[in-house]
């Protein structure tokens, strides 16, 4: 699992994008262990089908922001549908953390800072 670090572009971008989307309001240092069920979208009363629809909407919007606004690319061999599907798998797991989400995002997206470092 990736280390939660300010030096990791996926950690930084995942954290701030969840703030932009009004899902989590914690400072970076306190965010690694935040679980998916603590995100604003998680409705404990909703059915699993409902939660999956909401998680998929959120995963598509994370993809929109990463690709269109933050100028990220997909990692070599990765595709948009795989990236979204992997993100949804984490988002619907109550006990997965923001660090887990960042690790999956890191595996699928090459962020601008990483592109510049190459």
């Amino acid at each position: 699992m990736a280390e939660w670090s300010k030096n990791n572009a996926a950690c930084l971008t995942t954290w701030i994008t969840l703030r932009v989307l009004e899902q989590s309001f914690k400072v970076f240092n306190d965010s690694a262990a935040i679980t998916m069920k603590e995100l604003a979208y998680w409705n404990t009363a909703a059915s699993d089908d409902m939660r999956k629809i909401q998680a998929t909407t959120l995963a598509h919007q994370l993809d929109n922001i990463f690709i269109k606004i933050r100028c990220a690319r997909y990692e070599e061999g990765k595709t948009a549908e795989q990236a979204v599907s992997d993100t949804v798998t984490v988002l619907i797991d109550a006990d997965k953390t923001m660090n887990d989400l960042a690790a999956v995002i890191d595996a699928n997206y090459l962020f601008l800072r990483e592109q510049l470092d190459d």
Partner: peptide, 18 residues
């Protein structure tokens, strides 16, 4: 714009007080 957002994100990540 993306580079500007990256810079702002890095600065915001330094803040430890909510």
């Amino acid at each position: 714009t993306a580079i500007k957002l990256d810079s702002l994100t890095e600065l915001l990540a330094m803040i430890t007080n909510e």
